[in-house]
């Protein structure tokens, strides 16, 4: 548990952070440090330098404007879990954040770090895709927005270009007709998701008017379950309809992750169970 040598810089501003990243090839951004530092201690990651963005005020805070909820990249899991703004406008994010790791992890880990890390077993990526978030990033070429659907590109890989830093995550505020739920099946050792499913259901006139379902943990990045979604749209959100829809999970989820604890076959099965349970909770 002894990392190799590295240089350490503390960035005072976003521009300075981007500058430091460009000047130091092999440097990495340090946010909460709860994915990066363990990897460095195991010598799985060996950045030449760390650019600590932890004190950049622009990256902090949660706000609501024009029906858009914006969460700064440095916002910790605990802050999201406990935020009344998040609970009222996109409750599923708070619910999922409250299930990440343990209290110490939630006090340090950040939403930006979790998304940038793109761990297949992480919770946020699954939820971010289901709620259709936009991820704002800043880099050498200025600001740009990336749709959550195209943000995750592979195992631990994202659409972030060299030198780009996530600044915030934005989701449309949900009204009372919409409910979301995240169902997590945790690994007893790590607490990470073996499989997690997120369901967002809007109901009108007694039927589901829109449905969004994602599954993480089974594949390199979370996947959307279009078959499940379309099977439920226009139908009443009752147990029979939900079960029938959840049975279509395997149209979208074809697990590539698998280990001694949970084979890919078992993860495929769990995905359908988690989808059903997330849908039930989102429809209750």
């Amino acid at each position: 548990m002894f990392p190799a040598n590295f240089d350490y810089y503390r960035a005072g501003s976003l521009a300075e952070a981007v500058d430091l990243l460009q000047k130091n090839p092999g440097a990495k951004v340090l946010a909460g440090g709860h994915s990066l530092v363990p990897a460095m201690k195991l010598r799985v990651a060996g950045p030449s330098a760390l650019v600590d963005i932890g004190r950049i005020a622009d990256l902090k805070g949660i706000s609501l404007a024009n029906g858009q909820l914006t969460i700064g990249a440095l916002t910790t899991h605990a802050e999201v879990a406990n935020s009344p703004l998040v609970k009222d406008n996109c409750g599923v994010l708070a619910q999922a954040a409250g299930q990440i790791g343990d209290q110490m992890i939630r006090n340090r880990g950040t939403i930006g770090g979790s998304l940038a890390h793109a761990d297949p077993a992480a919770d946020y990526p699954t939820v971010i895709r289901a709620v259709g978030a936009m991820i704002t990033v800043f880099g050498p070429n200025g600001l740009r927005m990336i749709n959550a659907d195209s943000f995750f590109t592979d195992l631990f890989s994202t659409a972030l270009a060299d030198g780009e830093i996530i600044t915030s995550v934005t989701v449309a505020a949900q009204d009372a007709s919409t409910r979301g739920s995240y169902y997590k099946i945790p690994h007893p050792a790590s607490g990470y998701a073996v499989v997690g499913a997120c369901a967002i259901v809007s109901q009108a006139d007694g039927v589901c008017s829109s449905v969004s379902v994602t599954v993480g943990g089974a594949t390199a990045n979370p996947v959307r379950c279009a078959g499940v979604e379309s099977a439920l749209i226009g139908k009443a959100a009752n147990e029979a309809n939900i079960a029938a829809a959840a049975a279509k999970t395997d149209e979208s989820v074809n697990a590539t992750m698998g280990d001694q604890y949970a084979s890919s076959e078992y993860r495929n099965h769990l995905a359908a169970v988690a989808v059903k349970r997330a849908l039930m909770a989102a429809s209750a």
Partner: peptide
């Protein structure tokens, strides 16, 4: 929960608390 498991080459599978429950 607990199992100090090895693979067929004798590699321990549970050397951190990410894997050893």
């Amino acid at each position: 929960y607990e199992h100090g498991a090895y693979d067929a080459d004798g590699q321990p599978q549970t050397l951190t608390f990410m894997d050893y429950a």
